[in-house]
Write a protein that binds this DNA or RNA. Sequence first.
DNA 1: TTGATATCATTTGCATACGAATGAATTCCG
DNA 2: CGGAATTCATTCGTATGCAAATGATATCAA
Lengths: 153, 153
Amino acid sequence: MSAEDNLLKLVEAEEPDENDYRLQEQVGFILRKAHQRHVSIFAAHIADLTPPQFAALAKLRDVGETSQNQLGTLIAMDAATVKGVIDRLKARGLVDLSKHEVDKRRLLVNLTAEGRDAVERLIPLARDITQETLAPLSAKEIATFMKLLAKLA
Amino acid sequence: MSAEDNLLKLVEAEEPDENDYRLQEQVGFILRKAHQRHVSIFAAHIADLTPPQFAALAKLRDVGETSQNQLGTLIAMDAATVKGVIDRLKARGLVDLSKHEVDKRRLLVNLTAEGRDAVERLIPLARDITQETLAPLSAKEIATFMKLLAKLA
DNA sequence: TTGATATCATTTGCATACGAATGAATTCCG
DNA sequence: CGGAATTCATTCGTATGCAAATGATATCAA
């Protein structure tokens, strides 16, 4: 057997896909597509709010008044991003802002009555969105998937 | 038992989470976080290219010359998005553009020599990125997760 | 052939998303 | 106490991501 043959065999045995890189099989690529699909389903059910905007409202419903930064932490948005989201919700009258009495750095965010009504109205639709997003999976698969996805996030 | 008690019991029995909506448990929210984490891991390994930019280069390596729109389809980007990505890659000399001889609507995209070198150099890092993204899971869990994620995407 | 339709690319507008820099206010610690 | 470090918010710049509108070209069908 020639030296070339040995090398070839070695490569085939240890690095069968040395030259191979399948983008379509990489977790990042598929994650991005799955996320895109979800956003699209969301938009089909809730046309006048984006997923981050809804997340902000839903979290405010949970925790009540919080500072803008704290809210960002709760919904996984950095300070710059959450500011934009809150600004747009404020412009639409769904939240209002006030200064923290003691700590003058903090900007307190609250649901308005209209904002609260909106969340309550939208939560059933949000449940539908979750369901439709997971529709390709069986109940058992959903349980497995959610467990594993949570580990990755 | 009072009417109120009956109502309460009914609610508890049939709709235990009527008033409950846990944002943190919704697929969309976790999917967004998992995606964020992946992008962050990507940036830590490949600082000078974004995931979409790398996706474009990796796909061009696979398929060779294609039209801009076709490339967009292959990497799941709409026409407006892919244009921006390709413009930036062109500005950095990693791809070049030419007109289709026959169909004058089409803009052909190709890797430059530099672009090809870059992809080849980055693919090992991309493998590391995939591995690190999936690191919280065991080998068996990875297989399961990828199968289910693919169904959702 | 020609008129309707479809495809390719571009542009505009809006909404995340994040790094980096900045300023104001608070907290921590020596 | 008082300076250093931290936290909160804002701003700027850059990069997706998509809907909608537009123009150019190609294709299809009557």
